[in-house]
Simulated scan of single mutants.
Amino acid sequence: MLISLLALTGAAVAAQGDRSTTRGTVVDMPASAGADTPDTLPRRSMTMAQVERRYGEPRARHGAVGEPPITRWDYAGFSVFFEHDRVLHAVVPGDFPDIRNRDELRQ
């Protein structure tokens, strides 16, 4: 199932007397895109206790690795990385930025 989104721009809406014309672009996205991802991810420097209170029990807790100790908690739709007991990063697996200068990556 696909969800169609209508992207509107301010310049695309033109008033014509009593009528308004709206133009936009339809973007098809899988219905599951972002379904398990919360509206906001944990912020940098939140404590483990704050993350657990706000997002609940993680699906998996991975033990600390390295020095300083880095710990990962996995939730449905995102992972949180901690340094000691503070959020270092929160990421959505598979949500990678577009690759630019792709030709420079080939050797």
Rank of each mutant, 00 (worst) to 15 (best):
G24H: 05
D28E: 15
S20L: 13
P30A: 10
R44C: 01
A35T: 03
A14G: 09
P97E: 02
T9W: 04
V91Q: 05
H62G: 05
V26N: 08
T71A: 04
W73F: 14
E104Y: 09
F78D: 04
G10R: 02
I99N: 11
L88N: 05
A12Y: 02
V92N: 00
R86W: 07
T22K: 09
H89N: 10
P97G: 00
D28H: 13
F96T: 13
T22M: 15
R72K: 12
A60T: 15
M46P: 03
V13E: 11
I3L: 06
V92M: 01
H62A: 03
D28S: 15
R102H: 10
G66W: 07
R86G: 08
I3S: 04
R19C: 10
A31L: 13
L41G: 00
P58L: 04
A7H: 03
T25D: 12
R23K: 15
R102C: 08
E67D: 15
D28M: 15
A49F: 11
A15K: 12
M1D: 14
V27E: 09
A60L: 13
V27F: 14
Y55D: 03
R44Y: 01
R100E: 09
S20N: 12
D18T: 15
F96D: 09
I70E: 15
F96H: 11
R19Q: 15
V13P: 00
S79W: 02
M48A: 12
L2D: 14
D98T: 12
L6F: 05
A7S: 02
I3H: 03
L88Q: 08
D28Q: 13
A49L: 12
Q107R: 03
T40E: 08
R100C: 00
